[in-house]
Amino acid sequence: MSMLHTVNKSPFENSTVLSCISLCSKNSSILFIEDAVISVMKSTKFTDVINNSLKDFKIYALKPDLEARGLSLDNVIEGVKVVGYEEFVDLTTEHDSVQSWL
């Protein structure tokens, strides 16, 4: 079974991003949306965690949320895929289920 995890809170604000990563299984994916897109930026204190996670599962970040916050696509960690709303829909259908973290 594959699961799409979505997270919408900043990793600096609470531990949801880290909990999600620790509970995500290998054939699953994580999509960061809203304030959680901060997680995929280079040179933050979470960059190493994301880099290590990329060995185990796919990580996506929603482009409109990066753009809204002035976060440059050039500074997104390599290996993280930046997607739009249409690909968000595709991801939900490609996985068996979706877990929306609060």
Partner: peptide, 23 residues
């Protein structure tokens, strides 16, 4: 302070999320 520093980021573009860019 904390994530508040993101409020002043340059090049904010909210077209995609359909919210008002108040920066």
């Amino acid at each position: 302070t904390d994530d508040g520093v993101y409020q002043l980021m340059k090049n904010q573009n909210t077209e995609g999320i359909g919210m008002k860019n108040f920066s």
